[in-house]
Nucleic acid binder design. Sequence first.
DNA 1: CAGTTACGCTACGGGTCGTAGCGAAACTTG
DNA 2: CAAGTTTCGCTACGACCCGTAGCGTAACTG
Lengths: 214, 214
Amino acid sequence: MCSSPTTKRTGRPRSADADRAILAATRIALAEQGWGRLTLGDVAARAGVAKTTLYRRWAGKNELVVDAMAALFEEQLDLPDLGSLEADIRGVVLRFAELLNRPETRTALMAVIAEAAHDDALRVRIREAIVDRQKHLVVLGRKRAQERGEIPPEDGAADAAAGPDRDNLIFDVVAGAVVHRVMVSSEPVDEEWAGRLAVLLVVGLAGLHTAQDL
Amino acid sequence: MCSSPTTKRTGRPRSADADRAILAATRIALAEQGWGRLTLGDVAARAGVAKTTLYRRWAGKNELVVDAMAALFEEQLDLPDLGSLEADIRGVVLRFAELLNRPETRTALMAVIAEAAHDDALRVRIREAIVDRQKHLVVLGRKRAQERGEIPPEDGAADAAAGPDRDNLIFDVVAGAVVHRVMVSSEPVDEEWAGRLAVLLVVGLAGLHTAQDL
DNA sequence: CAGTTACGCTACGGGTCGTAGCGAAACTTG
DNA sequence: CAAGTTTCGCTACGACCCGTAGCGTAACTG
């Protein structure tokens, strides 16, 4: 975070093992205790690290949990080509739902978002660490659909300008719907539900393109 | 909550004014301090009430905030008929977004949802107090659209069975998309965005009906 | 080697938690 | 009106966690 690897620094280096152990311990403790009861002393004990070491690297709970979450999202960021836009959407929905079903992820993610509601700096960190990376998936999926001919390519200034807006809309709808289904409605995201959502979006997307020509 | 008004009880009655003052103080303090720094002692002081009184009525932070939130959602539950399904969706989206833009609402709602991620009892309370009431709006909007002829009425056993699933999908998509847009993407829900979402849903809903006949 | 930085450990003041105990206030019943 | 019941405000308390400071030691650099 703070120390760029290019600048060589003298003295004892920080232990990368400790970093990993702390972040892992954070996720485990968060899943067990929840945000409210999560204590940094507990995290330090689980990680086999002194509490002071924790405070030397992170300013507080928020920063620690955001980094712990960012590490989780690093791995899950691929979008296999399943042959059609509908199948791609279904796939990413199920993948995201699987991620949200892990207790550590769902607790941590929601807790961080909640804190971000009144912490602007935290919100910026979330955007950089998580949101911006996921948005890339939408762009990728759209380009594939355009190559397949499922969606008309952007031509004309008006259409090119509306493109990012459409991408952002799809992003919010897909991610938001999954989160809401799992967290608020607390009902499962299964193949059937994902299929319905995919149909809704594919058909609706076509409507968005034609409606915009008016 | 606990005392049903039918059963008469002897002794000094609980002050309804105190209840209102506490819930109002909770919302104000929550907006200022956020969930993490919200202390029940502070709430009691703002409400002009002893801390012990607070503990006599609510078991903890969660229960208190859920009740404070439920009171907020009581008022906002109407769906004016705007003439078309698209307009109705646009209207409810903007209404919900307006609610989420109030700092007290957005902080409290997200905090409660986050806590519910690892608290089953709390999740049940949220469903009863907030979710179930909002779902009614979807049912109402669908019935209106069917009366207008914008959506085919349910006929046949298969269609009637799929109806609730469609309603739930729309509910998660609408509410989830708005929350995600405001909380995660942290971009405004304006008329333009609401319009795009409404078009997406109206067109997609038609697709859902035809796709189901296969 | 000296110099520098990170580490583990201990200890501390400060704040919040949730509870207990008390006397006074409010309301019901006989 | 008097007795019984419940709530209220207030104070005090032990327990826990916070975030920081100080110290001696370990690890790495020149």
